[in-house]
Amino acid sequence: MLLGTALVIAAKDLRIEWRHRTAFTTAVLFAVLVLLVAVFAHDGATIQLRDLGPSVLWVVLSLSTLVTLNRAFLLERENRALDGILMAPVSATALFWGKWLANLVLVVVVMVVAIPLWMIFFNIEPSLRIFGVGAVALLAAAGFTAPGTLFSAMAVRTRFAELLLPVLLLPFLIPPLFFAAQATTQLLADAPIGELWGWLRLLALYDIAFLALAAMLFPAVMDQ
């Protein structure tokens, strides 16, 4: 029941997104621009572009995530559609999981486009390890979309949603960002898989902790 409702809500969100693709195109465009900013801002004489690779990837992924997250509840603000959902005998927890899932899918889709672009711009050799980077990205995205979903539901209740969300969310992005960037560096340096485990475990721990807490607190945010 909970899962079913969550899926219905996520499917509705993704269908709407599919129809005009605003969040997706904006986030991808944004990702490309940030990539270019990093390339042009770096000192080519002293720093190899390739060495910057992992750092830039995570700057791009976290910033483009911020761009996509506001969408979830801005969409519900139009015609106060959120009230329509709350009028149904649906638990707020199911709503959280639905929104989180839609956010995660969207962030992952943006990553699927951004990562190959990053490889091209930063001359990252294609190899099986790239799938490892993808897995790390998925693990990180699953985590930071949890506080992201919770905070975007709060931020849209103000007139400054687009400004408030980054300010609220960035401190929460730093731990998973750091873990993921470290894991990426090790993957690209061909470090033995064993050395990755520590970072992956930390990412998983963050995911579990914040998904559980955000899902528990979400009903308090929906309560008007």
């Binding site: 506080p147 919770l150 709060m154 931020a155 209740r157 103000t158 007139r159 400054f160 408030l164 300010v167 609220l168 960035l170 401190p171 929460f172 914040f210 807490l213 955000a214 607190l217 308090a220 945010v221 309560d223 008007q224």
Partner: peptide
């Protein structure tokens, strides 16, 4: 960020609830 959010909310009940959410997170 906690204070930024608080200052943007007008309903004191909502401000209290959202403040508590951020405090616990």
């Amino acid at each position: 960020g906690y204070f930024a959010l608080r200052s943007a909310l007008r309903d004191p009940v909502e401000r209290a609830r959202f403040g508590a959410v951020i405090g616990v997170m």
